[in-house]
């Protein structure tokens, strides 16, 4: 177990190093941030001074080595734009994205699982067929379009909910959170719903497929033959066996919401990390981009780790860190 953990950590570090190299090289190819940062009428001396200050006069390799050295001390560089440590800029935006992601995925699971369960158990009923047909819409309609429709209906036409922004926030652990206030919740609702629809459809279909697969198994027939109530058969014997794929998807989707909620954040003017990264790419704010991508790697590594641990809790036949043992 400990060895497995160490292996995992080592893998994570390797991924992060590889990631930083790709980003460094890639960004160098795209263009020179100096062109964007300095006003066009600055003279050559001013230009050289800024280049030297940002360390861009060094060869790329040395730039990278310098970055690595600083990174080991927890310093991922200063943002060219904000003139603050890049990590700090990102962490300021992180709560907004995190709470949006948690609520969206939680919502998807809370709705998708029961609906999928129903659709699996009563697959012949018209409601189940309706749900399955509806889930295809959830897959295929583009997020931005649904977001616009939500704003049009609930914010513009009905006027029930605000169309953007975080609303009132309250402080917890020194960070600002929307979910602690009623107004914050009103602001959260639409973007969270928009993000969760796709995942809801996915979880629902997965759950249904799992139920259809588990129901004919011998152990379900055996559970019924032991006189267990139908409720117990479903909630314990069926549910636990279908959770592995569902947990996997929840993990992946959670990661992707944190990393790639750009579209929704832009539409709902949600001041999260997604919006920040798009802005930073536009102005080639290298330290922010690098720090952001490294942070995302860390997030994914942790989510995968958590999912693996949950596997072992769900299925005793899964053993961490063992391979190729006989039979």
């Amino acid at each position: 177990m400990i060895l497995w953990l160490l292996k995992r950590l080592l893998q994570a570090v390797l991924v992060m190093v590889a990631m930083s190299i790709i980003v460094f090289v890639g960004l160098n190819v795209i263009g020179n941030p100096v062109d964007i940062l300095i006003s066009p009428d600055a003279d050559q001396a001013e230009r050289l001074r800024v280049i030297a200050e940002l360390g861009l006069d060094q060869p790329l390799v040395w730039q990278y080595v310098g970055f690595l050295k600083a990174a080991l001390h927890g310093d991922l560089g200063n943002s060219y734009v904000f003139n603050q440590p890049a990590l700090q800029v990102i962490l300021q935006r992180m709560p907004a994205t995190l709470e949006l992601a948690v609520i969206a995925v939680g919502f998807a699971a809370l709705v998708g699982l029961p609906l999928g369960l129903y659709a699996g158990l009563r697959s012949e009923s018209w409601l189940a067929k309706f749900l399955m047909a509806g889930s295809i819409l959830g897959f295929s309609l583009p997020t931005f379009w649904i977001g616009l429709m939500l704003i049009m209906v609930f914010a513009v036409q009905l006027g029930w909910l605000p169309s953007g922004g975080r609303g009132e926030t309250a402080s917890l652990f020194g960070l600002q959170w929307s979910f602690l206030t009623a107004d914050g919740w009103r602001h959260l609702l639409l973007p969270a719903l928009n993000l969760s629809l796709f995942k809801m459809a996915l979880i629902m279909r997965l759950t249904r497929a799992g139920v259809r697969e588990v129901l004919p198994q011998d152990y379900i027939r055996y559970a019924r033959a032991r006189g267990l109530t139908e409720r117990r058969v479903i909630s314990l014997h069926v549910l636990k066996n279908i959770m592995i794929p569902v947990v996997t998807v929840i993990g992946i989707e959670f990661g992707s919401v944190i990393a790639f909620s750009v579209v929704t954040e832009t539409i709902f003017a949600w001041p999260g990390m997604g919006k920040l990264i798009i802005d930073s790419i536009n102005v080639l704010d290298r330290p922010i981009i690098v720090a952001y991508l490294l942070l995302i790697v860390v997030v994914f590594v942790w989510i995968n780790f958590a999912v693996d641990v949950v596997y072992t809790l769900l299925d005793p036949r899964v053993r961490l860190g063992e391979k190729g043992s006989a039979r």
């Binding site: 011998d218 027939r221 033959a225 032991r226 006189g227 014997h237 636990k240 066996n241 005793p316």
Partner: peptide, 23 residues
Amino acid sequence: MRRIRGSDIAMIFQETSLNPVYT
């Protein structure tokens, strides 16, 4: 009928019928 299953009339199947994720 459910109360009779497993109490008055018990059933055994092939030995692979135990749920693999429970002790």
